[in-house]
């Protein structure tokens, strides 16, 4: 077990989006543009990190039977911090993401990492894991956001990259487009991976 290994697994091998398929709700809801995907990814990464550290430190204090409510209280605290910070410094993005910021509380990725990793391991590993998962989640959301923004608006991060000849594919920025893009990208990644990973290791 090394710090680097715990960090790196979140980027690809155990990527929360492409492998664990956690946090689908914000993924499908807010990745219609690259900026939204990036903002949601960073907010989630912050909460993952904060919640991971505190829950890891409190693991011996929290009674086992009420651990889930306790984790949620800690996570909700960090979500509130993220919510207010975004409202104060990035009001436009905050307005776009709207309800989905408070909903980070119930993102199963965050609770899942607290339950299955942070509270089972020392705090420095928890930090490493949270950072890896956070970066993995952020790049996945941004990546989906970029694809959907190109098809839906012909732009990347708001910069027009396709000319006037381009007819926007409106479905890409609709909820249906999120499912379609996600499914297609996932299929491509699985094909890429199946070359290097045997079937038995996938389970």
């Amino acid at each position: 077990m090394s710090l680097w290994k715990e960090f790196a697994k979140g980027l690809w091998d155990e990527n929360p989006v492409w492998v664990l398929l956690l946090g689908m709700c914000p993924l499908l809801a807010v990745t219609n543009t690259a900026v939204n995907g990036l903002a949601m990814g960073l907010a989630t990464a912050f909460v993952l990190l904060g919640g991971g550290i505190v829950n890891s430190l409190l693991k011996n204090v929290i009674p086992h039977k009420v651990r889930i409510p306790c984790y949620i209280v800690v996570i909700a605290t960090f979500v509130t911090i993220a919510d207010y910070v975004m409202a104060a410094y990035f009001p436009e993005v905050h307005k776009l993401l709207g309800l989905f910021i408070p909903l980070i509380v119930v993102n199963c990725l965050i609770l899942g990492r607290s339950e299955s990793f942070a509270t089972q391991n020392p705090v420095h590993y928890a930090i490493s894991d949270a950072l890896g998962m956070g970066v993995g989640f952020t790049w996945a959301l941004t990546f989906l956001g970029i694809i959907r923004e190109i098809f839906g608006f012909g732009s990347i991060f708001g910069v027009q990259v396709l000319g006037d000849w381009f007819t926007p594919w409106i479905i890409a920025v609709l909820p249906a487009g999120a499912f379609l893009t996600m499914g297609i990208v996932l299929a491509i990644f699985n094909v890429l991976k199946s070359g290097s990973t045997s079937e038995a290791e996938c389970h």
Binding site: T167, I170, A172, A176
Partner: peptide, 9 residues
């Protein structure tokens, strides 16, 4: 799919 993507066309 086309109707959702290109409603005008």
């Amino acid at each position: 799919f086309l109707l959702a993507s290109f409603p005008v066309l």
